[in-house]
Amino acid sequence: MRARGMWPRHAALLVVCAIMLVPFYWVVKTSLTGENIYAYPPRLLPQAPHLFNYVDVWYLIPFPRYLLNSVIVSLLAVGGNIVLNALAAYALTRAFPGRRWVVLLLLSCMLIPFQATIIPAYLITARLGLLNSWLGLALPMLSTIVCIFVFKAAFEAVPRSLIDAARMDGLGDLRILARVLLPLCKPAIATNVILSFIWSWNNFMWPLIVTRDPLMQTLPLGLARFLSYVEDTTGALYAFVVMVLVPGLAVFLMAQKEFMRGLTAGATKG
């Protein structure tokens, strides 16, 4: 694209950023003032902003305990995703009878909406004896089909000569995956990390059903405390939303560079 002058591009992007940022601004503004957002006319600047709503959120729900649960479940999910998806993707790059059927099976598995599987999933977890446990919380999220395909495309982008050379040196499949393929597909790993972290971190319905003990609940379940009928918890609600958002954002910012190159390698060569 020849640079036809940067000005129109910046203008268009500023409009887009405004549209994206305005709702955010209101969330943060209301978290600072806790005002009634239905008052008319909507006030642009915050009135007497203060950070104490965040202090309230910290003490109103056992925030450190919920945060710990969320971090452990998300780490389990991210770790599980990287290992399981890499193994499955590597298997799919090898030729074997019925490969097309496995791919179609995986594609169709993606299409089952979670809300329809709550009761059977609960019964299965109960029989596994994993109710009310971190593993039980993370189990359904240990592998994601979209991420398997991302890994698969990234592995196929690696030139075959490298793999054949490694095999010549007598490396087993597992060591080829760990020593040759994964170091070259760090971007695909980053993609897996961000997607599985955000999906497990924001998961609301599954923890709600699986956990009975309030101390085992994850962060999003704290939301119920701020949607109470009796109290006016507007400021605390928005402060809570901001506090739940920050970790997901931090993971994205940290992995952003690799995240972008990851999908590229997969997308074009596939």
Binding site: I118, I119, Y122, L123, A126, M205, L208, I209, R212, D213, P214, L223, A224, L227
Partner: peptide, 23 residues
């Protein structure tokens, strides 16, 4: 005594799942 608290829209989902599971 184990105390569980669920929000309005989610309580039916939780209660009926426990009902089906027999607990």
């Amino acid at each position: 005594v184990e105390w569980l608290d669920k929000k309005g829209p989610e309580l039916p989902a939780f209660y009926q799942t426990q009902l089906v599971a027999g607990t």
